[in-house]
Design a protein around this nucleic acid. Structure first.
Lengths: 240, 240
DNA sequence: CGCGGGTTTGATCCCAGTCAAGTCCCGTGG
DNA sequence: CCACGGGACTTGACTGGGATCAAACCCGCG
């Protein structure tokens, strides 16, 4: 399931293929691409958007800023993801979208969204599917923040990120995946302080390492180890 | 935005009205109603559903059960809400849906979902809208669990529940709304222990009371007070 | 060489979890 | 009629995980 055949190239492991007719339609539907440099902001929380996007390359994060000034990261954004749909449909994005590395995104006009639904009911169905998957992840995040302790949260997050990046084909020979986020990003994602985030990472160092913008896992056993720690089993999930 | 004109009767304050043609279509699309008694389970996490539902009356909750056995409530479910869509689209629900009071729901066949998208693009758009609103709530929940302390979480949750139930017209003369949940439900929703939930409620008692299945707020000032405590302002949100 | 962003480590404190009792209330059965 | 039990709620005492404060360290850069 996907919206952009272009971004789908990178995310092919995740999504079903397009028919030629759909491809032509999508090429037409797409408005262009957007380049975003590390740290760049695609939209702010509350913005009303004229476009939504799919991620072609690079990684980012969506976060909310609370009244007292601190940040809660809502999710990481990876190649193949769709962002900003809420901002076009409801007139206000629910979070700020920022690039953690240089990114390239495909842009789609809001105005043509009804056309998409009318002309391609399958695409509308795909969007329902994507929304459902998104909801699944947010639900897991809620469970993690609500009920797991620091080391469980950390291994859960790193495991999910790793699996996701492997799925989109970004694992290198050494078994590492790109990880442009800072420890403070992880802290804000997991609801931990920066200091405790660091100490927790130290405890996990025998299993997983974070260095030079890469996340590397020692071996397959390490993955199982992380799953064990996080309290998440390795049985392949039906979604994603 | 809504899917069921029947449930919309209860939730009319929230949703836009149907056209007569849509009404005829929806009546046909709906398969029937479901009665659920207090404690009853509509579906379990992981179930593949043949139907999804809208809530006509009563309240419930969606929760996940973790490996270690404890529960994380993902969201409360109120009249006008749609539940189980993910279970029909992706083949696996993301959480268990349980009734906190007796409930009546409207049921819609999965098999007819593509028809809905094809025949009524507006309805498809409505579903995107609903998904976006849902995502908004889940994001707020994540921010709350990640970054707020016990008393902030509690007043945030009670305020949201209260506002929501007022919006669907369930406030009585005394300014109270039905609240069939137990303190342990609140605990599981907010990621707190039952004991601390109770103590936090005690601290909030000058402002808000929970008794006999009702949630009552002293006055308008109390609402502002809760908003202040929770760190959430009272400015009306664009999304409900 | 100084500076700033990111990371690391140690010391201390406090919010919330855990354990333990006890109350209130209602339904059931002797 | 009262004893019993179980579910929801309450309250107190103790403990610990993670927040906070503080200080380095490392490294690339002007």
């Amino acid at each position: 399931m996907h919206i952009c055949e272009h971004c789908q190239l990178r995310a092919s492991a995740l999504f079903m293929p397009f028919t030629p007719a759909e491809l032509r339609f999508m090429m037409h539907f797409r408005e262009g691409t957007v380049e975003l440099e590390r740290g760049g902001i695609l939209f702010h929380e509350g913005d009303s958007l004229e476009s939504f996007y799919t991620v072609h390359a690079g990684q980012g994060a969506r976060y909310k800023t609370l009244e007292n000034g601190d940040r809660q990261l809502v999710n990481f954004v990876f190649p193949g993801d769709m962002v900003g749909l809420a901002g076009t449909v409801t007139g206000a994005t629910t979070a700020t979208m920022q690039a953690a590395s240089d990114m390239r995104l495909c842009r789609f006009r809001k105005a043509r969204l009804p056309d998409l639904f009318t002309d391609q009911p399958d695409r509308a169905y795909a969007m329902a599917w994507i929304a459902a998957v998104e909801e699944h992840f947010l639900g897991e995040t809620i469970a993690t923040l609500g009920r797991r302790n620091a080391i469980q949260r950390m291994s859960w997050a790193l495991l999910k990120v790793y699996q996701r990046l492997v799925a989109v084909g970004l694992r290198d020979e050494a078994g590492a995946v790109p990880f442009p986020y800072r420890q403070s990003d992880l802290a804000d994602a997991l609801g931990l302080s920066l200091v405790h985030t660091n100490k927790t990472l130290a405890r996990l160092r025998p299993v997983v390492r974070l260095a030079e913008g890469r996340l590397s896992v020692n071996d397959q056993d390490a993955l199982a180890e992380m799953a064990m720690i996080s309290g998440d089993d390795l049985t392949p999930r039906p979604l994603l």
